[in-house]
């Protein structure tokens, strides 16, 4: 997983590395001029958003409870277009894509020299989707940098899936529970934050955001095996399917916070 994320990071930032190289090598005045004109930009940040995990399971060897306000964390990549409304007041429209995750794994193995998995539980919560946002920014010069407080409003659509993959097998008894919940989410959000913009067009930003999340569809599916003899003994209980779905509208208020950087072209 780490390798894939680092690979993703390298791919996403190839553009930024190129941009930074250009900044170092190019004449500063040219770049400063771009900052004062309408421009394209992109941002990349790490966002932490609170959401829930609706999955719960009560077995003979373990119990998993549903959790509220669980921190999901991940990257958001955005591209936008900004233009000045006056010399110090700007607005921009941007579209962003995001992938947030909260994953926990607990493994109990037999022994180091024979790491047979006895109890293995993976709780994997993911959320991914798109936002369209409008941002209003005030630009204030502070020394060699600009300080830019901003307000942002947006709407978005996302999919959330929560997986619980649990198995216990001590070669005498066993139980299993592999279930996934898929949800469709609609977002409305408002955010407040600020940029610290250098003259060469790179900026750091942070923001906090309040999200009204509307859950429109809920589907739960998977399988489970009730506690009983281990398959090692050849007399295990059968695997039975788990299915449950619903269409409803349920609202949640959740906060998120972001820290990242951007670059003005």
């Amino acid at each position: 997983m780490i390798r894939w994320l680092l690979l993703g990071f390298i791919v996403l930032n190839a553009n930024a590395l190129y941009a930074i190289d250009q900044i170092i090598m190019k004449d500063t005045d040219v770049l400063e001029e771009k900052i004062y004109k309408k421009h394209w930009y992109f941002t990349l940040d790490t966002t932490l958003i609170m959401y829930n995990n609706p999955l719960s399971y009560t077995g003979s060897k373990n119990t998993f409870k549903s959790k509220e306000h669980l921190p999901y964390i991940g990257p958001t990549l955005a591209i936008g277009y900004a233009f000045p409304l006056s010399s110090s007041f700007w607005t921009s429209t941007q579209i962003s894509g995001f992938f947030y995750q909260n994953k926990e794994r607990e493994i109990e193995r037999a022994k180091e020299e024979y790491p047979l998995s006895i109890r293995d539980s993976i709780v994997d919560n993911k959320m991914y989707g798109l936002f369209i946002s409008q941002t209003f920014t005030i630009r204030m010069k502070m020394g060699s940098y600009f300080f830019e407080p901003f307000a942002q409003i947006g709407i978005g659509y996302a999919l959330a899936n929560n997986k619980l993959k649990y198995t216990y097998d001590d070669l005498v008894n066993m139980e299993e529970y592999y279930v996934r919940v898929d949800e469709e989410l609609a977002f409305q959000n408002v955010a407040l934050g600020f940029n610290i913009l250098s003259k060469n067009g790179i900026y750091l930003f942070t923001k906090i955001q309040k999200n009204l999340i509307t859950i429109g569809k809920y589907e739960k599916y998977g399988s489970e095996r009730a506690y009983g003899d281990s398959t090692f003994l050849g007399t295990a209980n059968p695997i039975v399917p788990v299915n449950e779905s619903d269409n409803f509208t349920k609202n949640r208020d959740e906060f998120s916070a972001s820290l990242g950087f951007g670059y003005i072209y």
Binding site: M1, T46, E106, I107, R109, A110
Partner: peptide
Amino acid sequence: VISCFILVSCNKRKETY
């Protein structure tokens, strides 16, 4: 940003014998 991504990459994992 690299620090942020490493933070993201470090999913919780606990392993015992």
